[in-house]
Amino acid sequence: MNIIGQMLLWAGFLSGSLATVLNVEDDKIPWSTIPWGWYLASVSICVVGIVLLRLGRTSTVESTEESTASLSEIRGSLLNLLKNTQQMSGQMDELAPSEMTVFIDDVLSPDCYIFAEGRNAITTEMGLQKFADVMTHFSAAERAVNRAWSAAADGYVDEAKTCVDRAVSMFEDAYQELG
């Protein structure tokens, strides 16, 4: 259904585009520049394609094997982030600023990327509001990690520690929201 939907969507779009650009301009009746019958027929094909795509998506959402796997992957990455920021927070008194930036780049960033790439699984599995709630906490945490990196690079160790502690709290909230 998805493939047929895609084909109809693009066939309708291309045909509609062709109708839109077919003539330069009818000087006498500008609105008759566009062959509206052709255009509306194309739009109708497009609409049918969109309906099929949406129906196809609904049935895909119901078969949750893939999205469940995705969700478990991002849950894993979020748990890693939580553990690693907690570990970093515990070591902040011992880490040199240059070690903090390396830790963030090498240990935290890859999991942030995995989580961000797979984030749409939350919508599929848990709905839009849950997605918004999780992402609100996650993005606040990621921003705190970024700020910790900047502060560490500039040597402001107290600020870096505050930001890492905040990131821990935000990742905890995100993890709790994700369930």
């Binding site: 309708g12 779009f13 839109t20 255009y39 497009c46």
Partner: peptide, 14 residues
């Protein structure tokens, strides 16, 4: 060219 804006607008909306 309002006619072209309208036709383009429909396609963009879809």
């Amino acid at each position: 060219p309002t006619y072209r804006y309208v036709a383009g607008g429909g396609l963009g909306f879809l």
